[in-house]
């Protein structure tokens, strides 16, 4: 198949590849640098837009005359804030595909308890470092936000003082996250489930997690068990 006067195709390819190797590596490095820059740009925009969404909801809540509307906007803002808390930490660590659950829980608890203004609730943290896939960050943040919000709101009404313990521990192939309070107990029986309970139920199914809310006498203990498939 070799045409006289021409190099065979394989040799031609070899020469071309040797010549092109240096240039090819340069192209690859440039492409990688561009891709990294683009990723940072997108990350930057996501964070700034989350800030904008969060501030807009706060602004709108300030302007709502009806206390029920204001409360609803505040609840929506708290949920956006949960997503914002995880996003603030994403891309700040070494591995963009994992996030540190212990560090996230520390931020989350400080923000939610601090933001509630409830200095009469003592908090104890017992957190084992575990990295989860980044894809689970937002749903887990929303789930924890609901459970923590419930503990404060229903556990300690009317300025009742008390304590909340947040635990994260690896148990075999599961991560156990527990939020325990010594408040007034479970008010869950009866009436139709609120949006909070619906969110908890659906997020658990999305995360393939199990969530049990039980009477801890005194108080309530919410336990989430999350599968750790091959997570180290």
């Amino acid at each position: 198949m070799t045409t006289p006067g021409f190099l065979p195709p394989l040799t031609r390819r070899r020469v071309a590849s040797r010549e092109g190797e240096a240039a090819g590596r340069g192209d690859l490095e440039r492409a990688l640098a561009e891709k990294t820059a683009l990723l940072h740009e997108v990350d930057h925009r996501v964070k700034n837009n989350l800030q904008l969404v969060s501030s807009l909801l706060l602004l709108q809540a300030r302007h709502a005359a009806d206390p029920v509307v204001r409360q609803a906007l505040r609840a929506a803002q708290a949920r956006i804030n949960a997503v914002a808390i995880v996003h603030r930490r994403l891309f700040q660590g070494e591995d963009p595909e994992r996030f540190d659950v212990a560090a996230f829980l520390r931020d989350m608890v400080e923000d939610v308890i601090g933001g509630s203004g409830r200095t009469d609730i003592r908090v104890t943290l017992d957190l084992e470092r575990t990295d989860l896939p980044t894809a689970q960050a937002a749903p887990l943040a929303l789930l924890i936000s609901e459970l923590l919000g419930n503990a404060i709101l229903h556990g300690f009404p009317d300025g009742r003082e008390g304590a909340i313990t947040v635990t994260a521990a690896r148990e075999g192939d599961q991560l156990r996250i527990e939020i325990a309070d010594n408040g007034v107990g479970v008010p869950t029986t009866g009436s139709t489930p609120g949006i909070g309970q619906t969110i908890v139920k659906h997020l658990c199914s999305q995360l393939r997690a199990d969530c049990q809310v039980a009477d801890a006498g005194p108080g309530v203990r919410a336990t989430v068990r999350l599968p750790l498939d091959g997570v180290h």
């Binding site: 964070k47 700034n48 989350l50 914002a84 996003h87 603030r88 923000d111």
Partner: peptide
Amino acid sequence: VGKPYSEHGMKA
């Protein structure tokens, strides 16, 4: 203060 900051984070 990193963005997105929270209401509590900025106030604190």
